[in-house]
Amino acid sequence: MDRHIERFADLVVRAGVNVQPGQGVVVDTDTAHLEIARAVVEAAYAAGAAWVEPNWSDGPMQRSAVDHLTVGQLSASRPWALTRINEWRDAGVASIALTGDADPHLFDGADPARVAARRHEEIQARRRALFDGMRWCVVAAPNPGWARQIFGEPDTERLWAAVSTAMRLEADDPVAAWRDRSATLATRAQQLDKLELTEVRYTGDGTDLTVGLLPQTRWTGGGLVDRFGIDYLPNIPTEEVFTSPDRGRADGVIRVTRPMVILGQLVTGLRVTFEGGTIVEATADQGADVIRAQLATDEGALRLGEVSLVDRDSRIAKAGIVFHNTLYDENAGCHVAWGQSFPFAVAGGPAMTEQERADLGLNMSGIHTDVVIGGDGITVTGTGPQGTATIIRNDEWVL
Protein backbone atom coordinates (compact mmCIF):
# COMPACT_ATOMS: atom_id res chain seq x y z
CA MET A 1 0.00 0.00 0.00
CA ASP A 2 1.21 3.50 -0.81
CA ARG A 3 2.82 5.01 2.30
CA HIS A 4 0.83 8.26 1.98
CA ILE A 5 -2.46 6.42 1.75
CA GLU A 6 -1.63 4.13 4.67
CA ARG A 7 -0.70 7.06 6.92
CA PHE A 8 -3.74 9.02 5.72
CA ALA A 9 -6.10 6.18 6.61
CA ASP A 10 -4.47 5.53 9.98
CA LEU A 11 -4.73 9.22 10.91
CA VAL A 12 -8.40 9.47 9.93
CA VAL A 13 -9.33 6.36 11.90
CA ARG A 14 -7.21 6.84 15.03
CA ALA A 15 -7.18 10.65 15.44
CA GLY A 16 -10.16 11.62 13.29
CA VAL A 17 -13.08 9.49 14.51
CA ASN A 18 -10.95 7.62 17.07
CA VAL A 19 -12.59 4.27 16.36
CA GLN A 20 -13.15 2.16 19.49
CA PRO A 21 -13.25 -1.65 19.68
CA GLY A 22 -16.69 -3.00 18.81
CA GLN A 23 -17.87 0.25 17.21
CA GLY A 24 -19.70 0.51 13.89
CA VAL A 25 -18.31 2.82 11.20
CA VAL A 26 -19.98 4.47 8.20
CA VAL A 27 -17.76 5.70 5.35
CA ASP A 28 -19.27 8.16 2.83
CA THR A 29 -17.12 8.11 -0.30
CA ASP A 30 -17.09 8.59 -4.05
CA THR A 31 -16.08 5.85 -6.47
CA ALA A 32 -13.11 8.07 -7.39
CA HIS A 33 -11.70 7.40 -3.89
CA LEU A 34 -11.79 3.61 -4.09
CA GLU A 35 -8.17 2.92 -3.13
CA ILE A 36 -8.25 5.36 -0.22
CA ALA A 37 -11.64 4.07 0.94
CA ARG A 38 -10.26 0.53 1.02
CA ALA A 39 -7.36 1.71 3.18
CA VAL A 40 -9.73 3.50 5.57
CA VAL A 41 -11.89 0.39 5.90
CA GLU A 42 -8.78 -1.73 6.57
CA ALA A 43 -7.57 0.76 9.23
CA ALA A 44 -11.01 0.80 10.88
CA TYR A 45 -11.11 -2.98 11.17
CA ALA A 46 -7.53 -2.97 12.46
CA ALA A 47 -8.64 -0.52 15.17
CA GLY A 48 -11.35 -2.97 16.27
CA ALA A 49 -14.45 -1.85 14.35
CA ALA A 50 -17.30 -4.36 14.55
CA TRP A 51 -18.51 -3.44 11.06
CA VAL A 52 -17.77 -0.84 8.38
CA GLU A 53 -20.42 0.24 5.89
CA PRO A 54 -19.35 2.22 2.79
CA ASN A 55 -21.94 4.56 1.28
CA TRP A 56 -20.96 5.09 -2.34
CA SER A 57 -21.63 8.07 -4.57
CA ASP A 58 -20.55 8.66 -8.15
CA GLY A 59 -20.16 11.96 -10.01
CA PRO A 60 -21.66 10.99 -13.39
CA MET A 61 -24.59 9.35 -11.62
CA GLN A 62 -25.17 12.56 -9.66
CA ARG A 63 -25.15 14.53 -12.92
CA SER A 64 -27.75 12.15 -14.37
CA ALA A 65 -30.01 12.85 -11.41
CA VAL A 66 -29.59 16.63 -11.81
CA ASP A 67 -30.36 16.44 -15.54
CA HIS A 68 -33.46 14.26 -15.22
CA LEU A 69 -35.15 15.05 -11.91
CA THR A 70 -37.08 18.12 -10.76
CA VAL A 71 -36.03 20.29 -7.83
CA GLY A 72 -38.85 18.71 -5.85
CA GLN A 73 -37.64 15.20 -6.58
CA LEU A 74 -34.03 16.09 -5.79
CA SER A 75 -35.00 17.60 -2.43
CA ALA A 76 -37.60 15.03 -1.28
CA SER A 77 -36.61 13.13 1.86
CA ARG A 78 -36.78 9.35 2.09
CA PRO A 79 -38.26 7.85 5.27
CA TRP A 80 -35.93 4.83 5.21
CA ALA A 81 -32.88 7.13 5.11
CA LEU A 82 -34.11 9.09 8.12
CA THR A 83 -34.66 5.87 10.07
CA ARG A 84 -31.16 4.65 9.26
CA ILE A 85 -29.55 7.94 10.38
CA ASN A 86 -31.38 7.83 13.71
CA GLU A 87 -30.31 4.24 14.26
CA TRP A 88 -26.69 5.20 13.63
CA ARG A 89 -27.01 7.98 16.20
CA ASP A 90 -28.55 5.73 18.84
CA ALA A 91 -25.83 3.12 18.31
CA GLY A 92 -22.99 5.67 18.56
CA VAL A 93 -21.68 4.86 15.10
CA ALA A 94 -18.57 6.71 13.86
CA SER A 95 -18.95 8.65 10.59
CA ILE A 96 -16.11 9.20 8.11
CA ALA A 97 -16.70 11.32 4.99
CA LEU A 98 -14.15 11.30 2.16
CA THR A 99 -14.61 14.37 -0.02
CA GLY A 100 -12.62 15.88 -2.89
CA ASP A 101 -14.12 16.80 -6.25
CA ALA A 102 -13.16 14.18 -8.81
CA ASP A 103 -14.52 16.43 -11.57
CA PRO A 104 -14.76 20.13 -10.64
CA HIS A 105 -16.66 20.79 -13.88
CA LEU A 106 -19.20 18.05 -13.25
CA PHE A 107 -22.16 20.42 -13.19
CA ASP A 108 -21.07 22.89 -15.88
CA GLY A 109 -24.14 23.89 -17.86
CA ALA A 110 -26.59 22.37 -15.40
CA ASP A 111 -29.57 24.21 -13.93
CA PRO A 112 -28.21 26.00 -10.79
CA ALA A 113 -31.48 25.44 -8.92
CA ARG A 114 -31.25 21.69 -9.47
CA VAL A 115 -27.57 21.63 -8.55
CA ALA A 116 -28.37 23.47 -5.31
CA ALA A 117 -31.26 21.13 -4.42
CA ARG A 118 -30.59 18.97 -1.38
CA ARG A 119 -32.56 16.53 0.74
CA HIS A 120 -32.64 19.02 3.60
CA GLU A 121 -34.59 16.90 6.07
CA GLU A 122 -32.00 14.15 5.71
CA ILE A 123 -29.14 16.65 6.00
CA GLN A 124 -30.60 18.10 9.17
CA ALA A 125 -31.15 14.61 10.60
CA ARG A 126 -27.52 13.73 9.89
CA ARG A 127 -26.34 16.92 11.55
CA ARG A 128 -28.47 16.26 14.62
CA ALA A 129 -26.98 12.78 14.79
CA LEU A 130 -23.45 14.16 14.59
CA PHE A 131 -24.11 16.74 17.27
CA ASP A 132 -26.02 14.33 19.54
CA GLY A 133 -23.89 11.22 19.68
CA MET A 134 -21.80 10.32 16.63
CA ARG A 135 -18.11 11.05 16.31
CA TRP A 136 -17.32 12.21 12.82
CA CYS A 137 -14.44 13.21 10.59
CA VAL A 138 -14.63 14.91 7.20
CA VAL A 139 -11.42 14.72 5.15
CA ALA A 140 -10.59 15.35 1.49
CA ALA A 141 -9.19 12.41 -0.48
CA PRO A 142 -6.63 13.18 -3.23
CA ASN A 143 -7.62 12.15 -6.76
CA PRO A 144 -6.62 13.07 -10.35
CA GLY A 145 -9.57 15.42 -10.88
CA TRP A 146 -8.74 17.39 -7.75
CA ALA A 147 -5.07 17.57 -8.82
CA ARG A 148 -6.09 18.82 -12.27
CA GLN A 149 -8.14 21.61 -10.71
CA ILE A 150 -5.10 22.80 -8.75
CA PHE A 151 -2.21 22.21 -11.15
CA GLY A 152 -3.85 21.98 -14.58
CA GLU A 153 -2.83 18.32 -14.85
CA PRO A 154 -3.69 15.14 -12.94
CA ASP A 155 -0.46 15.18 -10.94
CA THR A 156 -1.56 13.22 -7.88
CA GLU A 157 2.01 12.80 -6.65
CA ARG A 158 2.34 16.57 -6.36
CA LEU A 159 -1.07 16.78 -4.70
CA TRP A 160 -0.12 14.12 -2.16
CA ALA A 161 3.02 16.13 -1.31
CA ALA A 162 0.88 19.20 -0.54
CA VAL A 163 -1.69 17.14 1.36
CA SER A 164 1.08 15.52 3.41
CA THR A 165 2.28 18.97 4.46
CA ALA A 166 -1.23 20.10 5.39
CA MET A 167 -2.08 16.87 7.22
CA ARG A 168 1.31 16.43 8.93
CA LEU A 169 1.65 12.97 7.38
CA GLU A 170 5.43 13.30 7.30
CA ALA A 171 5.69 13.63 11.09
CA ASP A 172 7.26 10.71 12.95
CA ASP A 173 3.84 10.14 14.50
CA PRO A 174 1.05 12.03 12.68
CA VAL A 175 -1.51 11.15 15.35
CA ALA A 176 0.67 12.62 18.10
CA ALA A 177 1.43 15.67 15.95
CA TRP A 178 -2.27 16.36 15.56
CA ARG A 179 -2.93 15.95 19.24
CA ASP A 180 -0.24 18.56 19.92
CA ARG A 181 -1.74 20.95 17.38
CA SER A 182 -5.20 20.35 18.79
CA ALA A 183 -3.95 21.32 22.26
CA THR A 184 -2.54 24.61 20.89
CA LEU A 185 -5.85 25.48 19.25
CA ALA A 186 -7.76 24.55 22.41
CA THR A 187 -5.57 26.97 24.40
CA ARG A 188 -6.44 29.76 21.95
CA ALA A 189 -10.12 28.99 22.38
CA GLN A 190 -9.74 29.24 26.16
CA GLN A 191 -8.06 32.65 25.78
CA LEU A 192 -11.02 33.89 23.77
CA ASP A 193 -13.58 32.50 26.21
CA LYS A 194 -11.95 34.49 29.03
CA LEU A 195 -12.52 37.75 27.12
CA GLU A 196 -16.32 37.19 27.02
CA LEU A 197 -16.48 38.91 23.65
CA THR A 198 -19.71 40.47 22.43
CA GLU A 199 -18.54 41.07 18.85
CA VAL A 200 -15.63 40.50 16.46
CA ARG A 201 -14.55 42.71 13.58
CA TYR A 202 -12.64 41.61 10.47
CA THR A 203 -10.80 44.26 8.45
CA GLY A 204 -8.60 43.80 5.41
CA ASP A 205 -8.41 44.47 1.69
CA GLY A 206 -12.06 44.75 0.64
CA THR A 207 -13.37 43.42 3.97
CA ASP A 208 -14.88 45.31 6.88
CA LEU A 209 -17.35 43.11 8.76
CA THR A 210 -18.60 43.35 12.34
CA VAL A 211 -20.38 40.31 13.77
CA GLY A 212 -22.21 40.11 17.09
CA LEU A 213 -21.73 37.20 19.47
CA LEU A 214 -24.24 35.61 21.83
CA PRO A 215 -24.07 35.67 25.65
CA GLN A 216 -21.94 32.82 27.02
CA THR A 217 -20.35 32.20 23.64
CA ARG A 218 -17.92 29.28 23.64
CA TRP A 219 -15.01 29.07 21.21
CA THR A 220 -13.80 25.72 19.90
CA GLY A 221 -10.33 24.85 18.64
CA GLY A 222 -8.77 21.54 17.67
CA GLY A 223 -10.99 18.60 18.50
CA LEU A 224 -14.23 17.77 20.26
CA VAL A 225 -15.23 15.27 22.94
CA ASP A 226 -18.29 13.05 22.48
CA ARG A 227 -20.91 12.09 25.08
CA PHE A 228 -18.76 9.15 26.20
CA GLY A 229 -15.71 11.35 26.84
CA ILE A 230 -13.83 10.21 23.73
CA ASP A 231 -11.90 12.91 21.86
CA TYR A 232 -11.92 13.23 18.07
CA LEU A 233 -11.12 15.62 15.21
CA PRO A 234 -14.20 16.50 13.09
CA ASN A 235 -11.99 17.87 10.30
CA ILE A 236 -8.46 17.01 9.22
CA PRO A 237 -6.68 19.29 8.62
CA THR A 238 -7.96 21.93 11.03
CA GLU A 239 -6.16 25.15 11.92
CA GLU A 240 -9.08 27.21 13.19
CA VAL A 241 -10.64 28.51 16.36
CA PHE A 242 -14.33 29.12 15.75
CA THR A 243 -17.78 29.75 17.15
CA SER A 244 -21.30 30.57 15.98
CA PRO A 245 -22.50 34.19 16.15
CA ASP A 246 -25.79 35.95 16.79
CA ARG A 247 -27.64 35.38 13.51
CA GLY A 248 -29.18 38.85 13.66
CA ARG A 249 -25.96 40.86 14.02
CA ALA A 250 -23.67 41.08 11.01
CA ASP A 251 -22.98 44.31 9.16
CA GLY A 252 -20.45 45.21 6.50
CA VAL A 253 -18.79 43.69 3.48
CA ILE A 254 -16.44 40.79 2.82
CA ARG A 255 -14.15 40.00 -0.08
CA VAL A 256 -13.52 36.29 -0.43
CA THR A 257 -9.78 35.81 -0.89
CA ARG A 258 -9.68 32.25 -2.24
CA PRO A 259 -11.48 30.57 -5.14
CA MET A 260 -13.83 27.82 -4.10
CA VAL A 261 -15.83 25.01 -5.62
CA ILE A 262 -19.48 25.23 -4.61
CA LEU A 263 -21.90 22.50 -5.70
CA GLY A 264 -19.41 21.37 -8.32
CA GLN A 265 -18.84 24.84 -9.80
CA LEU A 266 -15.90 27.21 -9.47
CA VAL A 267 -16.59 30.54 -7.76
CA THR A 268 -14.06 33.39 -7.93
CA GLY A 269 -14.05 37.04 -6.90
CA LEU A 270 -16.97 36.66 -4.49
CA ARG A 271 -18.11 39.80 -2.63
CA VAL A 272 -20.92 39.75 -0.08
CA THR A 273 -22.72 42.53 1.79
CA PHE A 274 -24.50 42.07 5.16
CA GLU A 275 -27.09 44.31 6.79
CA GLY A 276 -28.75 43.49 10.10
CA GLY A 277 -27.43 39.95 9.97
CA THR A 278 -28.73 39.23 6.48
CA ILE A 279 -26.91 38.90 3.16
CA VAL A 280 -28.37 41.62 0.95
CA GLU A 281 -26.01 41.36 -2.01
CA ALA A 282 -23.66 38.75 -3.48
CA THR A 283 -21.60 39.30 -6.62
CA ALA A 284 -18.76 37.29 -8.14
CA ASP A 285 -16.44 37.33 -11.13
CA GLN A 286 -17.44 33.72 -11.79
CA GLY A 287 -20.10 31.45 -10.29
CA ALA A 288 -22.50 34.09 -8.93
CA ASP A 289 -25.54 32.11 -10.10
CA VAL A 290 -24.73 29.03 -8.03
CA ILE A 291 -24.11 31.20 -4.94
CA ARG A 292 -27.46 32.94 -5.36
CA ALA A 293 -29.21 29.61 -5.88
CA GLN A 294 -27.65 28.28 -2.69
CA LEU A 295 -28.58 31.41 -0.73
CA ALA A 296 -32.20 30.84 -1.77
CA THR A 297 -32.23 27.44 -0.05
CA ASP A 298 -33.98 28.72 3.08
CA GLU A 299 -34.13 31.78 5.34
CA GLY A 300 -31.10 30.70 7.36
CA ALA A 301 -28.95 30.46 4.24
CA LEU A 302 -28.76 34.27 4.25
CA ARG A 303 -27.35 34.48 7.78
CA LEU A 304 -24.06 33.53 9.40
CA GLY A 305 -23.60 30.27 11.27
CA GLU A 306 -19.86 30.53 11.95
CA VAL A 307 -17.02 32.96 12.49
CA SER A 308 -13.50 31.58 12.50
CA LEU A 309 -9.95 32.69 13.26
CA VAL A 310 -6.90 31.31 11.42
CA ASP A 311 -3.44 32.86 11.19
CA ARG A 312 -0.42 32.47 8.94
CA ASP A 313 0.96 29.65 11.09
CA SER A 314 -1.54 27.36 9.35
CA ARG A 315 -0.03 24.35 7.59
CA ILE A 316 -2.47 24.91 4.71
CA ALA A 317 -1.18 28.44 4.23
CA LYS A 318 2.38 27.12 4.37
CA ALA A 319 1.64 24.59 1.62
CA GLY A 320 1.65 27.60 -0.71
CA ILE A 321 -1.19 26.59 -3.03
CA VAL A 322 -4.91 27.13 -3.42
CA PHE A 323 -6.43 23.70 -2.87
CA HIS A 324 -9.80 24.47 -4.46
CA ASN A 325 -11.31 22.49 -1.61
CA THR A 326 -13.22 24.19 1.19
CA LEU A 327 -11.99 21.84 3.93
CA TYR A 328 -8.44 22.86 3.12
CA ASP A 329 -8.76 26.44 1.95
CA GLU A 330 -10.94 27.50 4.89
CA ASN A 331 -7.97 26.61 7.09
CA ALA A 332 -5.60 28.85 5.16
CA GLY A 333 -7.05 32.03 6.63
CA CYS A 334 -9.84 33.58 8.67
CA HIS A 335 -13.27 32.66 7.37
CA VAL A 336 -16.96 32.96 7.99
CA ALA A 337 -19.80 30.66 6.98
CA TRP A 338 -23.43 31.29 6.21
CA GLY A 339 -25.98 28.66 7.11
CA GLN A 340 -26.20 26.16 9.96
CA SER A 341 -24.63 27.06 13.29
CA PHE A 342 -23.11 24.80 15.94
CA PRO A 343 -25.12 23.91 19.08
CA PHE A 344 -21.93 23.68 21.15
CA ALA A 345 -21.13 27.35 20.38
CA VAL A 346 -22.91 28.49 23.54
CA ALA A 347 -22.88 27.15 27.08
CA GLY A 348 -25.58 24.52 27.43
CA GLY A 349 -26.31 24.52 23.71
CA PRO A 350 -26.04 20.76 23.10
CA ALA A 351 -28.75 20.11 25.71
CA MET A 352 -31.17 22.63 24.19
CA THR A 353 -33.91 21.85 21.73
CA GLU A 354 -33.58 23.23 18.22
CA GLN A 355 -36.26 25.78 19.01
CA GLU A 356 -34.41 26.91 22.13
CA ARG A 357 -31.23 27.35 20.11
CA ALA A 358 -33.11 29.38 17.51
CA ASP A 359 -34.73 31.52 20.21
CA LEU A 360 -31.29 32.21 21.67
CA GLY A 361 -30.02 33.46 18.29
CA LEU A 362 -28.24 30.49 16.71
CA ASN A 363 -28.88 30.04 12.99
CA MET A 364 -30.74 27.13 11.41
CA SER A 365 -30.31 26.14 7.79
CA GLY A 366 -29.93 23.20 5.45
CA ILE A 367 -26.54 24.50 4.26
CA HIS A 368 -23.22 25.55 5.75
CA THR A 369 -20.84 27.31 3.37
CA ASP A 370 -17.38 28.51 4.47
CA VAL A 371 -15.68 31.38 2.65
CA VAL A 372 -12.13 32.59 3.30
CA ILE A 373 -11.66 36.31 3.98
CA GLY A 374 -8.21 36.11 5.58
CA GLY A 375 -4.62 36.28 4.43
CA ASP A 376 -2.01 39.01 4.27
CA GLY A 377 -3.28 42.22 5.83
CA ILE A 378 -6.23 40.76 7.74
CA THR A 379 -6.79 42.12 11.25
CA VAL A 380 -9.34 40.82 13.72
CA THR A 381 -10.38 42.61 16.90
CA GLY A 382 -12.79 41.54 19.60
CA THR A 383 -14.85 43.70 21.92
CA GLY A 384 -16.17 42.72 25.35
CA PRO A 385 -16.41 43.87 28.98
CA GLN A 386 -12.64 44.35 29.10
CA GLY A 387 -12.62 46.61 26.05
CA THR A 388 -11.31 45.93 22.55
CA ALA A 389 -8.46 43.49 22.03
CA THR A 390 -6.50 42.71 18.88
CA ILE A 391 -6.60 38.99 18.20
CA ILE A 392 -4.92 38.80 14.80
CA ARG A 393 -2.78 41.55 13.27
CA ASN A 394 -1.63 41.28 9.67
CA ASP A 395 -2.50 37.57 9.63
CA GLU A 396 -0.54 36.79 12.82
CA TRP A 397 -2.06 35.64 16.12
CA VAL A 398 -1.11 38.27 18.73
CA LEU A 399 -3.59 37.75 21.55
Rank of each mutant, 00 (worst) to 15 (best):
Q62T: 11
D246L: 06
F274S: 00
V41N: 09
D226T: 14
A177R: 05
T379D: 15
G276Q: 04
T388Y: 08
A81V: 04
D103T: 04
I230G: 08
R179F: 10
Q190C: 06
R168C: 08
P60T: 11
V253A: 05
P21F: 11
L130I: 14
T268G: 05
D2S: 13
I85L: 14
V52A: 11
P343M: 03
G223Y: 06
T381C: 11
A39R: 10
G382D: 04
W51I: 04
A91G: 10
H324M: 01
G100K: 00
R127D: 09
K194I: 05
T31R: 14
L304P: 06
Q355P: 03
L399T: 10
H68C: 02
F151T: 00
T184Y: 06
W56C: 11
I254W: 04
R89N: 11
L192V: 02
D28V: 01
R255N: 13
N18W: 05
L224Y: 14
G206K: 12
K194E: 14
A189I: 10
G24Y: 03
L327V: 14
D10N: 14
G366P: 04
D395G: 02
Y328G: 01
A39Q: 07
S244W: 06
A166H: 08
T198S: 14
S75Q: 06
A50V: 11
Q340E: 15
V380I: 13
A177N: 07
L82K: 06
G252Q: 04
E330D: 07
N18D: 12
A15K: 02
K194T: 10
L74V: 08
A176P: 13
H4C: 11
V253M: 06
G349Q: 00
R128Y: 06
I279R: 02
T238P: 05
I391H: 07
T257Q: 06
P21R: 07
G300D: 09
H68Q: 08
S365D: 12
I262T: 12
P385T: 10
R201H: 15
S77P: 00
R227H: 15
T217V: 15
G206S: 12
L304M: 13
T99R: 07
A113Y: 02
A337Y: 04
F8S: 07
W397C: 03
V256K: 02
A49W: 08
A141D: 07
H4Y: 15
G349W: 01
V241F: 07
D58T: 08
G374M: 09
R3F: 13
E354Q: 02
A129N: 10
D285E: 15
E356R: 10
A43I: 02
G212S: 03
A301K: 05
